[in-house]
Design a protein around this nucleic acid. Sequence first.
DNA 1: CGTCAATGGTTCTGGACTGAACCTTTTGGA
DNA 2: TCCAAAAGGTTCAGTCCAGAACCATTGACG
Lengths: 242, 242
Amino acid sequence: MTAHPQDEGRLSDAVLRPATSNVFESAVEQLATAIRLGVLVDGEQLPPERELAERLGVSRNTLRDAIAALRDSGLVETRRGRGGGTVVTHVPPQPGSSTAPVRRGAAMADALDFRRIVEPGAAWLAAKQSLSGDQRSWLVESAEAVRTAPDAGSHRIADSRFHLAVATVSGSPMLIESVTRAQAALGEMLGAIPVLPRNIEHSCQQHDAVVTAILGGDAEAARAAMEEHCDATSALLRGLIG
Amino acid sequence: MTAHPQDEGRLSDAVLRPATSNVFESAVEQLATAIRLGVLVDGEQLPPERELAERLGVSRNTLRDAIAALRDSGLVETRRGRGGGTVVTHVPPQPGSSTAPVRRGAAMADALDFRRIVEPGAAWLAAKQSLSGDQRSWLVESAEAVRTAPDAGSHRIADSRFHLAVATVSGSPMLIESVTRAQAALGEMLGAIPVLPRNIEHSCQQHDAVVTAILGGDAEAARAAMEEHCDATSALLRGLIG
DNA sequence: CGTCAATGGTTCTGGACTGAACCTTTTGGA
DNA sequence: TCCAAAAGGTTCAGTCCAGAACCATTGACG
């Protein structure tokens, strides 16, 4: 065993990551991300508190605090009584009103690099699965939903949903989580891309190529198509920010 | 926005993952994993408690409980006083004594799939970086250390260290974490691979191919070499378990 | 040989979170 | 019409954990 103190340092610096803190905040972030990525769409009803709390692995008290925070942010509304519950009331913000000053570059570069690896990987793996009819039509519809999105905000959400759908049909929980994290990290920035019809059309063609390759079981083509798609997005973003 | 209830269900099931609970246990797992993967090698001294606690993002109390657990498991020893501290005392277990009954298949398949994507991705990204001389020699030495490992246990640790080194020089924190998780998930199983000289030699040749490609800046070759390596390992494991 | 600094060991307080029980509101159906 | 079920709303005791202060032990260095 070579005793290279600096190597040990490099490795342990890289591996010993700080644990996730603050259960409440992570619950808020998780729900808010799910809404902003379009996993939970406008008008959709959340599961009952007791059930959702269990699924998130937090106590009902904490979940309620998180929901209250979302309510304060205008993301959801809550009604009491039988048949009541919490519903998503989220009109996706139109781009251009980017209040968020550009993120710091390192995190963005990391997320872009990461996405360039896990999303094509998900497409590749999805193509190797034998998908059910439901899953196949889900993919097709997800891609179609991106094309028919009426405005920029809807387009962003539909795009997220498409990418998450690809990850989901890959069947790998670890990959799904990775894609979710990449999408969440890039979410704000992707929203800053100007929604020119040309960009949309190009993007949708690439989506279609991905879907076609996956449905055809051509893993290499699926990966290549998704790589192209990620590269195109990266180029837009990098150009946009410098 | 298509209102497909089942789609929502699929997506939210996939995305709303349970939050990490129990700070103490995750600290233990993190340190134990670091030791078993060889990030912290035998005889190496841990940072002082106050410093390590801060780096892990836990309180010193919790960290001390975690260290106590490691001490009970015989992974570390602690001495008081100036110049004292906690040192790793870990003799890697020789394979064959696999007390652990085979893991359940789904988690293993997930980890293998995930690894097949993130490790080649890390090699690809590493090859695209302009590496420092230190990093280049670190890679070479890491690969060489695998070849010269005296016994099966050391071989496993050196192998982990090599893969983590590749991920580290890729420069992407998100990727490093992913590779670490994949390695940790597969750790026990990789240890179950019979260490035939032929397997070792084959594995080392693939390591060398990866290093050569990375140092040469040939990203596609690096990825292909790592894919081959992961596939070989997968085949061994799947054959071993059925 | 004594002192000091670096380290682990101990204790305490306050806040965050859990788990459970119970209350309140609303609606669908007997 | 009225009741029961299904939801959200409230409260409380207990546990986990952070943060800080302080104690005990040991080796380094003057």
